[in-house]
């Protein structure tokens, strides 16, 4: 009887859990893992996000002798886009790069958790760190400029999709690009592009036509369109197209990230 006991010890106990319940449990533990691992960073990031959002909202008025309401409205409704994508798109790849150098990257990949659940958990963390900054920036903008904001329910899908695409892009960048130096460089260039060369903080008419056309192929311009449409009462006919383009980018980026994660090194 002793031999069968020993055999029982080697066998894995119970049955392999599958299905939604398993995914949900994994999801919760991955979110907890991220929140616990990043606890100090997340607080710092959240404050930096809120401060930079408020800084932009207030600082832009210094550029003008008397700031036109339209300029204030554009900046105030563009800052949320930046807040939503910053963690996923810029901090995310840098985090992955530092995990690669520290070795925890391989450890995370050995965990018996599906890649989709890991990605969903990271997306949740990005949302958690972005949304408070959005609220703070908008409140400060409203207090400072007394803007004609009109927040509709469309803000929910707009925020969710904007953050999702930003996070997935960063995820693809972090996982598909092997060299941490390249990741760092690309993510820093992205910051520059988002602030200055995508029509997020100012109307598209203020940039050269060809640059505006070029931006049509990238998601940032469309993110600004959907967020702005949800925050103001103006009906922009470009909204459905914008959702489509952002959605395509989210799918492509997620596929790229999934492909590079599924590959064996």
């Amino acid at each position: 009887m002793a031999t069968s006991d020993a055999a029982g010890l080697i066998l894995p106990f119970g049955t392999v859990q599958r299905g939604l319940r398993r995914s949900l449990r994994d999801y919760v533990s991955m979110v907890r893992w991220h929140l616990a691992g990043l606890r100090i960073w997340l607080m710092l990031l959240g404050s930096v996000q809120a401060l930079s959002g408020v800084g932009f909202v207030l600082g832009i008025s210094l550029f003008f002798r008397h700031i036109p309401t339209s300029a204030a409205l554009f900046v105030s409704t563009g800052v949320p886009v930046i807040n939503l994508v910053m963690v996923g798109l810029v901090f995310g790849p840098q985090l992955v790069a530092s995990q690669r150098t520290a070795g925890s990257y391989e450890y995370l990949r050995t965990l018996p958790i599906s890649r989709a659940v890991t990605a969903a958990a990271w997306y949740t963390v990005c949302l958690i760190s972005g949304i408070p900054a959005v609220v703070v920036s908008l409140v400060v903008a409203q207090l400072r400029y007394d803007l004609p904001l009109h927040i509709s329910l469309m803000i929910v899908p707009a925020i969710l999709l904007t953050c999702l695409t930003g996070t997935m892009l960063g995820y693809a960048l972090g996982h598909a690009v092997g060299n941490p130096m390249v990741t760092q460089l690309v993510s820093q260039m992205l910051v520059f592009i988002i602030f200055g060369f995508a029509p997020i903080l100012y109307p598209i008419q203020q940039m050269p036509g060809w640059l505006g056309d070029l931006n049509w192929w990238f998601p940032f311009r469309h993110m600004a369109v959907v967020i702005r449409a949800a925050l103001t009462s103006s009906a922009d006919p470009a909204v459905p197209t914008a959702y489509a383009v952002i959605g395509v980018w989210a799918v492509v980026a997620a596929a790229l990230a999934g492909w590079s994660l599924g590959r064996r090194p």
Binding site: F63, S70, G196, F197, P199, L201, P203, Q206
Partner: peptide, 15 residues
Amino acid sequence: LMGAGMVLMYGFFYP
């Protein structure tokens, strides 16, 4: 690139 980029970028902010 940073200097020139910022110069171009500031221009975009004005109507």
